[in-house]
Amino acid sequence: MPTGVAMRDVRAQLFDAAERVLLRAGPNGLTSRAVTTEAGCAKGVLHRHFPDFDTFLAELVLDCAARFEAQAIALRERAGHGTVVDNLAAALSDLFGPVALAIVALVISRDGLRARLRQTWPTGIPVLTDATAMLASYLDLERQRGRLAADADVHALAPALVGAGHLLFAGQPDPPPTPGDVHAQVAAILAGHTR
């Protein structure tokens, strides 16, 4: 005899529920019970699809990191258009939305999760590492087009932008930094490197 209603795309529903819990209750409030309650399913559903909660959390983080590919493509397509500072300021504002900030906080706060992620993600913090690679790729394209100085070190500028952006957005979650704040920060970091 069936005990409930079949769930379609269980992983996506559980990930969506986890993000809502994370945004509402923070990393400490993210438990398997909170996720399954938010998803409207039995706790056993999560454990049927994931061997343990740390594996679920690692998959959640990797799912979030995978979403950066679309943003990376869009940013690379802006190379040669607009200004470098405007493009980067917009990219940082898109990158550091509430979910991405919450995911970074989750990774930093959970030792078991970091240990699990190290099995497939040997260095850095997912989301921040992806953001750095995305910005370095874009900066390299702008350097090739001559809009960034030929001697600009994109592998130093990208992490500087990501670190400063993370500090700016994580330090002011409500209200978030203004576009002018982000633009000023990017302009300061790129001073002397843009043409």
Rank of each mutant, 00 (worst) to 15 (best):
G4D: 11
A6P: 04
F15C: 02
D16W: 01
A18S: 06
R20M: 03
V21D: 00
L22N: 02
P27C: 05
P27D: 06
G29F: 00
L30D: 12
V35M: 00
T36I: 08
A39G: 09
G40K: 01
K43L: 00
G44Y: 09
G44R: 11
L46H: 07
F50V: 05
F50H: 15
D52P: 02
D52T: 05
F53H: 11
F56Y: 12
F56I: 10
L57Y: 05
E59F: 04
E59S: 14
V61Y: 13
L62F: 02
D63K: 01
A65S: 12
A66L: 10
R67Y: 08
A70C: 02
Q71E: 10
A72R: 15
A72D: 13
L75G: 05
R76N: 10
R76T: 10
R78T: 13
A79Q: 09
G80A: 09
G80P: 08
H81W: 10
G82R: 07
T83D: 12
N87I: 01
L88N: 12
L88E: 11
L88I: 15
A89S: 14
A91P: 01
L92R: 03
F96T: 00
F96S: 01
V99F: 05
V99T: 14
V99I: 13
L101A: 04
A102D: 08
I103S: 01
I103K: 03
L106K: 05
I108E: 07
I108A: 03
L113Q: 08
R116V: 06
R118C: 03
T120C: 04
W121S: 11
P122A: 05
T123K: 13
T123E: 15
T123H: 14
I125Q: 07
I125R: 06
P126F: 07
